[in-house]
Nucleic acid binder design. Structure first.
Length: 637
DNA sequence: CCGTTCGGGG
């Protein structure tokens, strides 16, 4: 009996259970869905417009989650008009957003590049939290409005809101420019007090701030003190060295971190390749290219652009072109890098040809024209260059900047139209730069224009009296005109002034080692053999007709000493060293920090002829490929 | 919950 009733009871219950699921589920299932609950799935599926009409239909029934989903979708898609609709709907429904939702609105405006609306939102909010303030600071920072970002940061603290690690990381990116470092240091001390300075993002931002202020030692100190490192902080320190031209240091710190197993991304390799371009370190460049492939990053356009640039600056245009040709998509920068590469190598006709295919695919920008104009100048295509300038101004309606004028002045000077170049300098809407005067002075040397040369040199000596290169060229001009008294006068002039010039430095990469030479260098371990080699070269090329150009020496010494000073020029040391290799290679690649001097250029031409070698010499201005006694620069540089 | 750091070509 008892057992039966139990079974009965159980069956009844079981029966009831399945028969009345609704009543029972009232206690175990979630509460009924809010009316706006279908907005979120629509937003997540990317059906933003359906969600918006849903919002309109629901009227005042839209709640927190609905607005949140809508705003998130607008933020993700940078949908400004849609975001405004959501905002308007909130106002019409008299919905009072929480601090969170108001902040989401603010962020929506920031992401849609409507900083005024965002600022208005921030001002109108009855309450703000650290996220609201930081989002606004970030908006100003990312749009380059540094002053506004810093002002808002101050306002935030005046309002009693303490910054957090996000705020610090953001606001420090606005600490560049003239007063940036001053503010940056203050913010650094604030971060120290609040212990956010060792946060990885804050640290990356801090060290980048110092690097951009040329305070690389402080940047390094911040980096070394960081408790943790990630790919961004490591990249930031490498980039810091590279930005300041401290290419060897950039490579050193990369080697160190790489040994420690640092992670790399495409930014890291871009910065590193930049440093290797400066060093003309083709071997390392190839190795990094290999790493890029192994890290499965080779299809980043940014990285391919860096590789194009690296190979061309390391003297290997063929590889640049291979990468360029294999790119699935190219940006305007890819084209510009390739154009600049041809230009620096003096291949003007390739520049023109490439530019013509470029305009079929993308619209050239200011840098494209700079590359084309400078390429035409280096390639000797004077009229073509002037036509391109005309095309830029009248065809494309672009406003040339000071760099474009510099190229055209260079072009005119090369053509010997020096008065015309002077006229252009007078009527252009910019102040002439030392580079322009320098280019004109070079033109006066090549075209033996003594009178304008004197005038231009005087200008240069006023503006940069410390640059002895100008004295040397003026001396060359006088010497070419046979005005030896004036040569002596220039020499006197130079003695009066305390001339501190950047020491000439050349380097050559042999057997994966960089050998660096300074003028009259006595430090290289093989200096005895190098000197002996130079003397051997000297004797042999003299037989072939080489005459040292003593006007390249301005020290007040006798001719014999001048000769020995000339023979001590860093590029000659490097050439001699390059010829000493036990396994002689056909091509000797040399890099120099300044412009090559007239005498060394001539020396290299004779060596290439007598010793049947190719000499590739990259100076601060361009490549000189010297073969069988002639140079691709056609003696104009 | 939401907001963050490094960045290619003259």
């Amino acid at each position: 009996m008892h057992g039966r009733s139990r079974v009965f009871l159980l069956r009844r219950i079981h029966f009831k259970d399945s028969d009345r699921p609704r009543q029972l589920s009232c206690q175990t299932s979630p509460p009924p869905l809010p009316p706006d609950s279908n907005l979120k799935p629509l937003c997540l599926q990317g059906r933003l417009h359906e969600a918006l009409s849903g919002m309109a239909t629901l009227g005042t029934e839209v709640r927190f989650h609905g607005y949140d989903a809508l705003l998130t979708a607008c933020i993700d898609r940078r949908a400004f008009l849609e975001g405004q609709l959501v905002h308007a709907h909130m106002i019409k429904s008299q919905y009072l957003p929480s601090v969170y939702l108001a902040t989401r609105l603010l962020i929506m405006y920031v992401k849609c590049d409507s900083l005024n609306d965002a600022r208005h939102m921030l001002e109108a909010m009855p309450e703000r939290n650290v996220v609201s303030w930081t989002a606004m600071v970030s908006g100003y920072s990312q749009k380059g409005h540094r002053a506004e970002a810093l002002e808002l940061f101050v306002k935030m603290m005046e309002a009693g809101q303490l910054p957090d690690e996000y705020t610090f990381a953001t606001v420090l990116t606005s600490c560049t420019g003239p007063f940036g470092p001053k503010h940056g240091r203050q913010i650094h001390s604030l971060a120290l007090k609040t212990n956010f300075d060792s946060h990885m993002f804050v640290g990356s931002s801090l060290l980048d701030m110092y690097a951009k202020a040329s305070e690389i030692d402080d940047a390094r100190r911040v980096f070394d003190m960081l408790p943790d490192r990630d790919v961004v902080s490591c990249t930031a320190i490498i980039s810091g060295y590279a930005q300041l031209g401290l290419d060897a240091e950039a490579l050193e710190v990369f080697k160190l971190l790489h040994k420690e197993g640092m992670e790399c991304n495409y930014v890291t390799f871009s910065c590193l390749l930049n440093a290797l371009s400066g060093l003309a370190a083709l071997d390392y460049g190839r190795q990094v290219h290999g790493l890029v492939i192994r890290c499965e990053l080779p299809f980043y356009v940014v990285l391919q652009n860096s590789l194009i640039d690296m190979y061309s600056k390391c003297g290997s245009l063929i590889y640049s072109r291979k990468i360029f040709d294999n790119m699935l998509e190219r940006s305007v920068i890819s084209w510009n890098a390739m154009l600049a590469g041809y230009g620096k190598h003096g291949l003007g006709s390739e520049v023109v040809r490439l530019f013509k295919s470029m305009v079929q695919e993308v619209r050239p920008d200011g840098v494209s024209f700079l590359a084309v104009l400078s390429g035409c100048s280096h390639g000797g295509l004077v009229d073509e260059g002037l036509d391109f300038f005309d095309f830029m101004v009248n065809g494309q309606r672009m406003k040339p900047d000071i760099g474009h004028y510099g190229c055209v002045i260079d072009l005119l000077g090369r053509a010997g139209r020096i008065e015309k170049a002077l006229d252009l300098m007078k009527c252009m809407p910019f102040e002439p730069t030392t580079a322009m005067w320098g280019s004109l002075l070079g033109a006066c040397r090549v075209h033996a224009n003594v009178s304008i040369g004197e005038f231009v040199a005087q200008k240069l000596l006023d503006i940069e009296p410390e640059n002895s290169g100008n004295f040397v060229i003026l001396s060359n001009i006088y010497a070419a005109a046979g005005r030896w008294q004036d040569v002596a006068r220039v020499r006197e002039l130079m003695k009066e002034r305390t001339v501190t010039k950047e020491p000439g430095r050349s380097w050559i990469n042999l057997d994966k080692t960089m050998h660096t030479f300074y003028s009259s260098d006595r430090s290289h371990p093989q200096r005895e053999q190098i000197n002996a080699k130079i003397m051997e070269l000297y004797e042999r090329i003299k037989e072939a007709g080489y005459v040292p150009d003593l006007s390249c020496v301005l020290h007040d010494v006798d001719d014999e000493q001048k000769e020995s000073i000339l023979l001590g020029h860093s590029e000659k040391l490097a050439i001699a060293f390059g010829l000493m290799g036990s396994t002689p290679c056909k091509l000797i690649r040399i890099t120099k920090n300044l412009r090559i001097c007239v005498d060394c250029h001539n020396f290299a031409k004779y060596v290439s002829k007598v010793y049947a070698r190719y000499i590739s010499l990259r100076d601060s201005n361009r490549f000189h490929l010297i073969v069988r006694g002639t140079c691709t620069c056609r003696d104009y540089w």
